[in-house]
Design a protein around this nucleic acid. Sequence first.
DNA 1: TCGAAGATTCTA
DNA 2: AGAATCTTCGAA
Length: 169
Amino acid sequence: MVARIVEVEAYRGSDDPASHAFRGRTPRNAPMFGEPGHAYVYFTYGNHYLLNITTQKAGTPGAVLIRGVQPTEGIEMMRRLRPHVPDSELTNGPGKLTKALGVDKALNGLDMTRKGALFVVDRNESRFEIWRSTRIGIGEAGLNHLWRFYIRNNPYVSRHKPVRELKFS
DNA sequence: TCGAAGATTCTA
DNA sequence: AGAATCTTCGAA
């Protein structure tokens, strides 16, 4: 399976009350304090795995939450992992896409910069426009920052109304 | 050890 | 708008 990342959110550390790393290191958020480019997968609301990719050098917490992806190869498998769902709803949310891609805690801590069960490559695309907005599903904690980034109007961006949005690049 | 909250999703 | 569902964390 291959999918294109179309929506992400940034999370930091002690300066970001919405982040799991806000109060320091715990067993769950340990990957956020590790090497960059690694998976941070956690379970929430009794149902969903959410996938992050760490971003900062070891010792400095930081990660990017993957909130939406666009299927490009192997969509049949994604349909099997998320049955009775129209294609447009397959991967347009952080909990939906992990289910459709078979991501769970077994991948927590994986180096995603090297070819393996789950990894990221740069396709060097340029023909799209990035917008930014407030993050989704957090309290007032992080509304000061526009730390959600997405390809506007892409159908696989999760459907939420951000408090504020503007063009980024 | 216990209670509360949660980077969500689905249904009514 | 509200329930489902269970792990994680911090306080007691």
